[in-house]
Every structure is written in structure tokens, then in C-alpha cells.
């Protein structure tokens, strides 16, 4: 056998690491999702210590280390606090299909909440037509089409009649 250290062919073995999951929403998110599905409204939790309204609702206020147990209803309208125009076709893991670029992701703070929610924004991907501070409203699927996950939200869209501040 040839003992010389010769350069060999490079081999890479293709493999898909395909792991199926079924994630439990848990008590807090199950209530959030059923309120959204059945009543078309957003709910958050209010910390008994710092009064911070958190959305999505979760078991503990991380800042205060206390259990959240007061529920509050939030508005379906809010303010855009940040956005990006996406030029990469990012994948939706529940369908395996890409979102077609260009599209807009926005961070919207619903009125009454201290947290923001991130979702698609139905607006032309044009920097002249999107701005921080824009007033937004949520657009949900029709009641009979809602299934109890985040796809029940179609997107946010700007409230009509707004002008970009100079």
C-alpha cells in the first residue's frame, strides 16, 4: 500500500437532519391564541410588581421574578417602532415555504402594551412609504379560517390618511 500522504478526493455526505416537533403552547400562550382565534383580540399579562404589560403573555415577569396573573386586553392598533425590508426569502417552518421577497417585517407596539409584536407589514417595500411612528392596525383572517396559531394574523397595515413626518 502506498504509504505516502497523497491528496485524496474530497467527500461530503449529504444528510438532512429532519426532526419533527409538536410544541405545547402552555397555559399562557394557549389563552393568547384562543382569544385571538375565537374573539379576534389580543391579550397580555400585567406584572403585579412593575405593572409592565407583556405580550406574548408568559408565566413570569423576568425583571421582577414574580408570577404574572392579571390579564389585560390590548388594542388591535398600535405604533410601528422598527421595520426592515427583507430581500432574502426566509422560510416559514410550519409550511416549509419561503416568504417571497421583497417584503416588510415590522415591530409594532399595540396600544396598552409595553412589548412589541413582530409580523409582516402590508405596505409597499419603499422607504418613502414606511416610517417609525407610523400608526398600524392588525388584519386577521376571517373567523372561520382562524386555526389558533400566529398565522391567524395576516399582517399589519397602516391606518389610512397618514403622512410621513418631514
Amino acid at each position: 500500500m502506498n504509504q505516502k500522504n497523497t491528496v485524496t478526493e474530497q467527500i461530503c455526505v449529504p444528510m438532512t437532519v429532519d426532526v419533527p416537533y409538536r410544541f405545547a403552547a402552555g397555559k399562557y400562550m394557549a389563552r393568547f391564541l384562543t382569544e385571538l382565534r375565537d374573539n379576534g383580540r389580543f391579550v397580555g399579562v400585567k406584572c403585579p410588581s412593575c405593572n409592565r404589560v407583556q405580550m406574548p403573555p408568559r408565566v413570569v415577569c423576568a425583571a421582577c421574578h414574580v408570577k404574572n396573573d392579571e390579564w389585560v386586553e390590548l388594542s388591535s392598533e398600535g405604533t410601528m417602532v422598527g421595520f426592515t425590508i427583507m430581500y432574502l426569502p426566509l422560510t416559514d417552518p410550519t409550511t416549509g415555504k419561503p416568504h417571497e421577497p421583497p417584503f416588510v417585517y415590522g415591530s409594532v407596539r399595540l396600544d396598552g402594551s409595553d412589548s412589541t409584536v413582530e409580523h409582516m407589514v402590508n405596505v409597499e417595500p419603499d422607504l418613502d412609504k414606511i416610517w417609525v411612528g407610523m400608526r398600524m392596525k392588525v388584519v386577521l383572517r376571517d373567523r372561520e379560517e382562524r386555526i389558533g396559531d400566529l398565522s391567524d394574523i395576516i399582517h399589519f397595515e397602516p391606518l389610512p390618511g397618514q403622512k410621513r413626518p418631514q
Partner: peptide
């Protein structure tokens, strides 16, 4: 199967 709790809620049961 603990379908009633997500990972954080399950963890908080024992932390609390």
C-alpha cells in the same frame, strides 16, 4: 406528556 405546559412553565413549577 405534559401538553398543558410549555418548557418555561414546566421549569417554573419546580423553581417556584
Amino acid at each position: 406528556k405534559r401538553a398543558d405546559a410549555n418548557v418555561a412553565e414546566l421549569a417554573y413549577e419546580v423553581i417556584e
